[in-house]
Structures are given as structure tokens and as C-alpha cells.
Write a protein that binds this DNA or RNA. Structure first.
Lengths: 327, 327
DNA sequence: CGCCGCTCAGTTACCGATATCAAAAATCAT
DNA sequence: ATGATTTTTGATATCGGTAACTGAGCGGCG
């Protein structure tokens, strides 16, 4: 920057102004600075800028897994909004571990991020304490938690799960199986299980433990879950796969075995993967606002950072049932 | 840090040393500093640290699309290695535009990243110039380019495409269709087209323009490509879908229409999505080292940053054909 | 015993920007 | 034309660390 200042015959302060707030500087100077910047090939040092102004344009994001395409849409939404507002995105994955999340949060705070977006909604006490002390605004994404750290942008996993279960009940299915990821380590799975059970009760159907299963994620896992339930003591007439790609695995397994869907068993899924609509038969599913969650998270965060808003906030982005031939 | 120093009865310099290189201070002081850090809830300011030392532990990554699950594995690989080495990841997506890539690169250089990973291999002149001047090490990922900016970690799109086409030819297919993304905006597609044509020549098969198609990505697009070729002037006996999820879309379309695969037409894909193995019939495909590309990219970058290596470098991670029932 | 070399801690000068305050120049009102 | 007001520019301190050098303390050696 010294070089630019010298070449433009002005002080460094003026260069700084010309670059960050051109209106504050005369057109003449503005032009000379611009020219000098070009000539020198000057690349501003945001590290120095942020240190001096104690403002940064970096947002930290922690997701459980980068590879999971569900989170990918949310990340895309965040990235889109941030780019439009000239902010940068730092990303870390926690591998579904609270300790790893804590480490990522610490690293982000050390970088003095302007805001945090966390997909998970349960955190270590140390992480919570650090965030509190730092005063950095936070958005949580995973589910509509009743007691957020700060802001939440999500949908209700419990309501969504309940709605789909009721949908199946209304269609006349009576022995509705339910498969989710392990609830012990996953708040979203817990909510979904609660929704399932609430819906059964509401529909006057008995809760049958043999119809509820927890599985790891993955296609093979979905296929296995299907077989286990179909060969179990209580044979379901419909199965709601409330997690990951389980429903796809199950649907493909039915295709392999030539089982008619929903003739032999109906299948419902939890997330609107493109693929579900292209399977034979296309699979009934919930459409969740993944991309929109990302967008809105970034927006509310920026609003807060730029002083356009303050205080806690909960945004419920709702969901939608897509009814297809599989149920 | 002042507070920590005061509380531990040492100078700030000593605190700095105790935190960055504990071996340099006595155990007594080390303990006092650690205690003070805890008591104060001190979170080091890496901005200041990086500014002062002109070293940062941030890597910038530009991918064409965050949402695309192909890139997601690579990002995961990068993230895994970086975390292990206590580095952070900044990510931006270019939306397949060189100008957006340039903007992302500029933003990263302004943040003084320690290294860059770019998925694309074609860049604006301005971007190249900036990178050159900055002296920041770079890894390119998209394909094994002959003239890299700096380092490349990838596989040969051309060889892979050639290998699969030859594989089909060896199986006895004679009218091999080829579908890829638009080559004009995608260096990887260009390479794949070259590989296809090279293989035809090698196998003594005529090149038939009507058998080659360019389509946008997506499942629906794959289905449409299938239909166009099957209804075209030259009906293929096999189709190689060399991009994105095209093959899945096509395979599912065959399922919907009840077309036997490979009875009516054989189908081959370009990337090892889990799903391809679960379709009916499972689809022959190329297995590309997506995750490994991420890992190795991060590793070679860190090697360079930490002075364990220097100079250009090209890592060819090869590929593998997975032969399944669809061909 | 004194010099050397080593370890450990402190002093000082930055890194490259911005905040703040003050001065100079330009604009305006009377 | 003169003082008041506004706009434009500059000088200096500072953000929170680290580099580089300095000096104190200590044991080993000839």
C-alpha cells in the first residue's frame, strides 16, 4: 500500500479511503489511486485490515459431513448469499463429533470470524462458553431447537416426521415401519422418532417396537433395513425411511427382488433427492428447504453483523409432502 | 494476551512462545501461562499472528459447484488432511465461470492464504498473473493438464474415457454412443471427447457424429439423451455417458420403459456413484479417485508450504474400470 | 578463575491496514 | 469580503501478535 500511496502522491490513509469508501475522496485522487493500484498490482491485505478495524468478512460453517449431499445444498445456499455480499466462507466438518465441532469453533474464533453457522444443535459446554464470550452471532440449522444459542433457521424434524406418518395413516396403512439413523448421536433422528410416535398416537395406531429400526446411513443399509422389517415378527404394509439415502436403497432392493411397491410394501422417504422422483415407482417424500435454509441463515447472519437486526430469532421454513406412486 | 502475560508474570513475548513453541520456555513458565490462559479465557488472534509472521494456515479452494457431490468427495479429502495438520479451509464456488473463479482467487489472496486448490484448469489471464505475483503454491485438480500453473493432482480424463470406450469395443459393441457435458465450457468434457475419438480410431470403428451428444447435467437430461440417441438416425448398441449423473438418468429411463439393458442398449457411466451399483442392472463405470485427489492435493500443498518440497509436480492417480451387468 | 556457549526471558521494532483527530482547502451565507 | 461550515487530506497511534536481537544466569572447560 505504501507503494500505491507514493505513486499516487497521496498518504496511505487516502489510499485506504479510496479503496474502502470511494465517496470520501475526490474523483481526481480516486482515479490516481486506481491507476496506481493497477500499475503496482496491489492486492490489499485483509488480515491487516481486519486486525485494525476488528471487523472481518469471514463466516465459519461447521457441518457434520462435507460429503453428504444433503448438507451440500445448504452450503450452496450460504455460499451464494455470502458471495453476493462480498463475504468469505470457511468450512469445517465435525464428523458428527461434538469435540471436533468444538475444535472447529475454536479455530474459527481464533480467525475472528464475523459469524458462525452450525448445523448441529448440541454442543460441548466449552464450545458454548467460547461462543458466548466471543459475542459472535450464531445460526443453528439442524432442527428447530427450543433453546437456541442465538438464532435458528430450520424446519421442524418432529413435525415433518409426524406429517408424513399421518399421511401414510390417512392413506390406509396400518402397520407403518420407521427407520432412522441412530438417535443417540443425532438430535434430528430423535426428533423424527418423536414425530413418528406422536403421529401413531394421533392416528390411533398402536406403537409396535418391532417396526422401528435404527440403521447407519447408506444405500446398502436401507436395503438391509427393508429386509429385516419384511422378515420380522410384524410385517409392515408401509415403511417410512426417515434418514439419508435409506429409502433409495430400499426402493432399489424392491426392484431387484421384483417386489411391487406399494403392492407389497409402501415406501416413503425423508428428503427430496432428485433421484426419488425418477425411480420406479417414484417415491413419496418430504421436500425440505435445504437450499433456503442456507440462504436464510446467511441472510439473518449478515443482517445481524451489519446491525440491521438484533436479538434472537427463529425462522421456521416449513416442509412439504410430495405424494408419489410409492405410497 | 496482555492480560495473560500480566497474570502469568511474564512478557507477552514469553506468552507467545509458550503457546507456539512450548519447548522454548521453562516448564514452570509454561504451566503459569497455561493456567493464565484458562483463567482469562484467552483466544489467540490468528489475524494478528499471521500479519506479523506473514504465515497463515488457511487454504483456499475453488470448485465449480459446491452442490455437486463429485466435488464433495474431493473437498472431504482435503478437509480431512487439513484438519489433521491444523489448517483451515476457505471455499468458494465459481459456478463454472472463469470470472467468478478470478474473483474468488482475488479474495483468497487478499486473505493471504497459504495455498490454493483449484478444480478448474483454465483461468483468466488476470487470475494467472495474480497467482504468479503472489507466489502462493497452487494445486489444480480437474484433469492432468500438460501445462499446469504449478502442481497438478488428478487423473487423465482423456485416458479414462479412452479406456472405457475401448472396453466397450472389446465387448463387441460397434455403435458406441457418447454423451458428455458441453465441451465449450468444460475442459474435462473436451478431454473425454478426445479420449472417445481416439479409442474409436484405435478400435477401428468409424466416428459417427450422430452418436455424439452434448447435454447439460442432471437425471432428466440423461434420460433425454438416451431417447434422442435411440430415436436418432444411427441407433447405438451401447452408450457411454461421460458426465455427471447422466448415466443414472438413462438407466432409470430404461427401467421405466422396460428396455432390457444391455439387451436393447448397453450403458456405461463415468463416475463411481454408489447408486450405480445398486441399479437394475448395476451399471459399468469408471472408478475415479475423487477422495484421494483431495487428500493428495492437500498433502502436496502442505509439503510445499512447509518447505519439504519444491518445484512443479504432477501426480497421476489413475482410474479403474468397474465392469458390471449393464455392458 | 574467567571465557565460552547454552538456555531462557525481555525489549523493541515492525507486519499493513484503519480510527481518530487535526489541518487545509473548498463551499457557502451574509 | 469574511467568517462559518463542509469537504478533503494527512499525521499519528494502534490493532495483537512475532522476528530479531539483547542480556542475564548458569554450567563446563581449559
Amino acid at each position: 500500500m505504501r507503494d500505491v500511496a507514493r505513486m499516487a502522491q497521496v498518504s496511505t490513509m487516502t489510499v485506504s479511503r479510496a479503496l474502502t469508501d470511494p465517496a470520501k475522496v475526490s474523483p481526481d485522487v480516486r482515479a490516481r489511486v486506481a491507476e496506481a493500484v493497477r500499475a503496482v498490482g496491489y492486492v490489499p491485505n485483509k488480515l491487516a485490515g481486519s486486525l485494525s478495524s476488528s471487523r472481518s468478512r469471514i463466516i465459519g460453517l461447521v457441518v457434520p459431513s462435507i460429503e453428504n449431499s444433503l448438507f451440500a445444498s445448504t452450503v450452496q445456499g450460504i455460499s451464494d448469499v455470502l458471495r453476493r455480499h462480498d463475504h468469505q466462507l470457511m468450512i469445517a466438518d465435525s464428523g458428527y463429533s461434538m469435540e471436533a465441532e468444538e475444535a472447529a469453533i475454536r479455530a474459527f474464533l481464533e480467525q475472528r470470524v464475523a459469524g458462525l453457522i452450525l448445523h448441529d444443535t448440541t454442543h460441548t459446554p466449552a464450545a458454548v462458553e467460547m461462543i458466548r464470550r466471543s459475542g459472535v452471532p450464531v445460526v443453528e440449522n439442524g432442527t428447530l431447537v427450543p433453546d437456541p444459542l442465538d438464532m435458528v433457521v430450520s424446519y421442524s424434524n418432529q413435525d415433518a416426521s409426524r406429517a408424513m406418518t399421518l399421511h401414510l395413516a390417512r392413506l390406509g396403512y396400518r402397520r407403518i415401519g420407521f427407520v432412522s439413523l441412530h438417535a443417540a448421536t443425532n438430535a434430528r433422528s430423535r426428533d423424527r422418532q418423536l414425530g413418528y410416535r406422536a403421529a401413531l398416537e394421533e392416528a390411533g395406531l398402536p406403537f409396535e417396537p418391532a417396526l422401528m429400526l435404527e440403521m447407519p446411513g447408506g444405500l446398502a443399509s436401507g436395503a438391509e433395513a427393508l429386509l429385516r422389517l419384511m422378515e420380522g415378527p410384524v410385517v409392515p404394509d408401509a415403511i417410512f425411511f426417515a434418514g439419508d439415502v435409506l429409502a433409495m436403497g430400499a426402493s432399489l432392493e424392491c426392484a431387484r427382488r421384483g417386489w411391487p411397491v406399494p403392492g407389497k410394501v409402501a415406501i416413503a422417504a425423508f428428503d427430496n433427492f432428485d433421484l426419488l422422483g425418477h425411480l420406479v415407482p417414484p417415491v413419496t417424500t418430504l421436500k425440505l428447504p435445504r437450499l433456503e435454509i442456507g440462504r436464510r441463515s446467511a441472510e439473518v447472519l449478515l443482517d445481524r453483523i451489519q446491525g440491521r437486526a438484533s436479538g434472537p430469532l427463529a425462522v421456521d421454513l416449513r416442509f412439504e409432502i410430495i405424494h408419489r406412486a410409492s405410497t
